[in-house]
Design a protein around this nucleic acid. Structure first.
Lengths: 361, 361
DNA sequence: TTGAAAGCGCTAACAG
DNA sequence: CTGTTAGCGCTTTCAA
């Protein structure tokens, strides 16, 4: 790989100045037809590939949007590059892919490609000495960050320089945008179903409250119980990323021999882990206890036991995030709230004890 | 958003030179502790976010790898940005996501994050006047391109300047690498199953031959038939992206009233489209005719009727592509063939007439 | 319609 | 251990 040709090489070969070469690519009509043709020919012959870095430096923008996320399924062990398994995976595993974040990412991708933005994916660590979010922030015009994937201070710092949309995070006053999703209603309706249709009284809430979205879910849960005149139990901390934690939480109930009517889980992942833990103890769902999820990931719909859950509009979330950034970059100063709140939808599965096939859902 | 602070601002505030600021980030031990601390403090206070463009320009590399692909499910209509549907999608649709390319992309992502590369996603069109592949090539140190997503000349041109891995393309002598997957064996084994276990004789091959991978599949198909003393029929052109084409191809057989024993399809997508077309005509699979796929996408495994297909190691393919680029960028000059050929695996489903549950597969 | 020249922000010799 | 300085490749006035 020889030195990459530059505008200088192209200019020399075409017998023009570098300015003309630049114009030929950026403002073709500003250049005489014959000159244009000569430049393009020279560029083609040389295999000219313009440096986005140089262009970005000169123009002050990159034409790319960044998506920063943290993948707890694969990031925990940094440093060691994975090895391509000689074996073909025996089974595609919906429990690992696509997760919530993957579906949001898809929405981001789709919207970016439609709008002509390149998408820069960043995550976890980076080889430099710079926090990874900062590193990727330096590469793009606008950044989308998944809640909890980066420290709030870093997000805040970055947001001073480029527009940032944090998904699932707190609403903040430091210029960080977010996409609003109606988590509250979703969880309220689901809980209401458990109480009213199934007559459940002893519900256990499995999930942490460490993001705004998660908190809203718990509040929806509480609201439904209050409405039914029932007290809302304290949430049992359980993080989607921490399967062992979920198992442990469930184990406490098993050990105590005090099975509730239902485990209401903060995400599908937690619900699936809970079901596993219960199965391991010989307790069947929904016969022994009901379990519900949240997100509506593919895994929840195609699991052996279809999950009763709440569908989030993941693709729309991703698309909206890009739209917000694009609008800002385009000069709009519309407030984040102008994009409204995306709806969620209660999804009846089998894990609550219903038989969806029998119902007009 | 005020002007982004630069090394100059940080240097001024910390009372040092810009070189020291640079060192503080790139070679921390080359700087006195107290100075380092001062620089970092100044950077933090200012909200300094280093410009990747400037760094890239200066160092000659970006630290990013590019993935270029074409999404025929969403790219056809460029220019018009998608709108976030107010409705929550009624059903997650495995027929649209994740497809083969999405699973490969996942492997690329995983390997990139483990190796500390940022991943630049590009596709379809771009707002500039530059072919999209060229544009994204100018942004990265190495490029992975999905077969058929970009014109061969463009790939070839790009490969003169940065290492390129083309997935599923022809093996070429212009320095474009590829990841070898044993498509031939996969399709041969599958076909053999149809002939030997089911005794099928009239097989129809549904699929184009426009990439090296696709050709290898057809050859595997032919080989199995030859081995059984059967003639290999001409392939019936059908492209994974062209559902209508598949429907039309199937319709010809329906109309002619000459249903074969099986439709052997070049991809799962084609197979699923074929099954739909057959169902629409009242022909059930596998009772009326067998249908097989290739790829082992999630859709094939979780479809109502599980597809008999061939599993590709998508994640490994993506990971290997990144590994090849990383090796080259790291100075290795190992030939592409040194990475071996990734295996495929025959997957017994129901669409050939088998009942996988009854067999030790 | 084209050219000359001044940066864009950072890195990396090379001095000191 | 730190400062000076010369670019990296491209865009963009400003002149011609």
């Amino acid at each position: 790989m020889e030195r990459r040709p530059t505008v200088y090489d192209v200019a020399a070969r075409a017998g023009v100045s570098i300015a003309t070469v630049s114009f030929a690519f950026t403002q073709p009509n500003r250049v005489k037809q014959s000159t244009l043709k000569a430049v393009l020919a020279a560029a083609g012959a040389l295999g000219y590939v313009p440096s986005a870095n140089a262009r970005g430096l000169a123009t002050g923008s990159t034409g790319a949007i960044g998506l920063y996320s943290f993948d707890y399924l694969s990031d925990p062990v940094p440093g060691q590059a994975g090895s391509a398994p000689a074996e073909v995976a025996a089974d595609p595993d919906l429990r690992r892919f696509p997760l919530y974040g993957d579906e949001v990412q898809r929405g981001v991708q789709l919207e970016c490609r439609q709008r002509g933005y390149a998408l820069m994916l960043g995550s976890g660590h980076n080889p430099g000495h710079l926090p990874a979010v900062i590193d990727i922030a330096g590469r793009v015009d606008g950044l989308i960050a998944l809640a909890d994937s980066a420290p709030p201070e870093a997000i805040s710092q970055v947001s001073k320089r480029i527009p940032v949309v944090e998904l699932g995070g707190e609403t903040r006053d430091d210029g960080v945008y977010t996409v609003f999703v109606d988590n509250h209603t979703g969880m309220r309706v689901l809980t209401q179903h458990l109480v009213e249709v199934h007559g459940f009284r002893r519900l256990v809430y499995l999930g942490v409250l460490d993001t705004a979205e998660f908190t809203a879910r718990y509040e929806g849960f509480s609201a439904a119980l209050s409405a039914a005149g029932l007290p809302a139990p304290e949430p049992q901390p359980s993080h989607p990323a921490d399967e062992a934690g979920t198992v442990a939480a469930v184990a406490r109930y098993i050990r105590a021999g005090a099975m509730p009517d239902a485990f209401v889980c903060v995400t599908d992942q937690v619900a699936l882990a809970a079901i596993d833990a219960l199965a391991a103890a010989g307790i069947e769902v929904p016969a022994g206890v009901a379990v519900t999820g949240f997100d509506g990931t593919l895994a929840s719909r195609f699991a052996t036991l279809r999950l009763t859950t709440v569908q989030q509009p993941m693709e729309a979330i991703g698309r909206t995030a890009v739209r917000i950034l694009a609008d800002i970059l385009g000069g709009s100063d519309r407030p984040g709230s102008a994009y409204g709140q995306l709806p969620t939808r209660f999804v009846l599965g089998e894990s609550c004890g219903c038989d969806p096939a029998q119902r007009r859902n």
